Computed example of a mutant assay.
Amino acid sequence: MAGTFSQIYIQVVFAVKGRQSLIHTSWEEELYKYINGIITNKEQKLLAINGMPDHVHFLIGMRPSCCLSDLVREIKKSSTAFVNEKKFCKHKFQWQQGYGAFSYSHSALDKVISYIQNQKKHHSKRTFQDEYKAFLTSYQIEYKDEYLFEWIED
């Protein structure tokens, strides 16, 4: 019987609106579990998730039938509602528009998973803005600064 076989690994990165540092360590794990539930319910596989107070990274194994933009839209919409309903923030929580999506081979997974798991250590040396631009440059993605996330001056 013929079948469809695939290996699609995507790292997704997106930021809190205005790049505000709203994701607090006291509830970030609950947020990540909630995002994992969305990914699982959409029949995708979460391989790693972590972030900083102003952004999140996750690596998924995708089925070819999945539309990445629909998945990210659902994650952002549902997780925004979750954070606001739980009243984790004093102010309204919202993700910025847009996201980065970067593909990887199976042989790179351990390195990418380690990178995501070590976000806090990694960002002690590099800002999110520098990290994100490095991704775009590494993947040879042309961009204009005015179309990137809204950057708050550090």
Rank of each mutant, 00 (worst) to 15 (best):
M1Y: 09
G3F: 08
T4V: 15
S6F: 10
S6P: 03
I8V: 13
Y9S: 03
I10H: 01
I10N: 03
I10Q: 12
Q11S: 02
Q11V: 00
Q11C: 00
V13H: 03
V13K: 01
F14A: 08
G18A: 01
I23Q: 03
H24W: 03
H24C: 09
S26Q: 12
S26F: 03
W27A: 08
E28T: 09
E30H: 11
Y32T: 06
Y34S: 09
N36G: 07
G37P: 03
L46R: 05
L46W: 01
L46P: 01
I49Y: 08
I49F: 08
N50T: 09
N50G: 10
M52H: 14
H55Q: 13
H55V: 13
F58M: 13
L59M: 11
G61P: 00
R63W: 02
L68Q: 05
S69P: 05
S69M: 02
K76D: 07
K76T: 06
K77I: 04
F82S: 11
F82A: 12
V83N: 08
V83Y: 10
N84G: 11
N84Y: 10
E85M: 11
E85T: 13
C89Y: 05
C89A: 06
K90L: 04
K90M: 00
H91A: 04
K92G: 00
F93R: 10
Q94S: 15
Q94W: 10
Y99R: 07
G100M: 07
G100I: 04
F102L: 00
H106E: 12
V112P: 02
I113Q: 04
Y115S: 06
I116A: 05
I116R: 05
I116Y: 09
Q117M: 09
N118M: 08
Q119S: 14
H122T: 08
K125Q: 14
T127G: 13
D130M: 05
E131D: 15
Y132E: 04
F135T: 01
L136C: 10
Y139E: 04
I141D: 00
E142N: 01
D145I: 05
E146L: 02
L148A: 06
W151G: 03
W151K: 04
D154N: 08
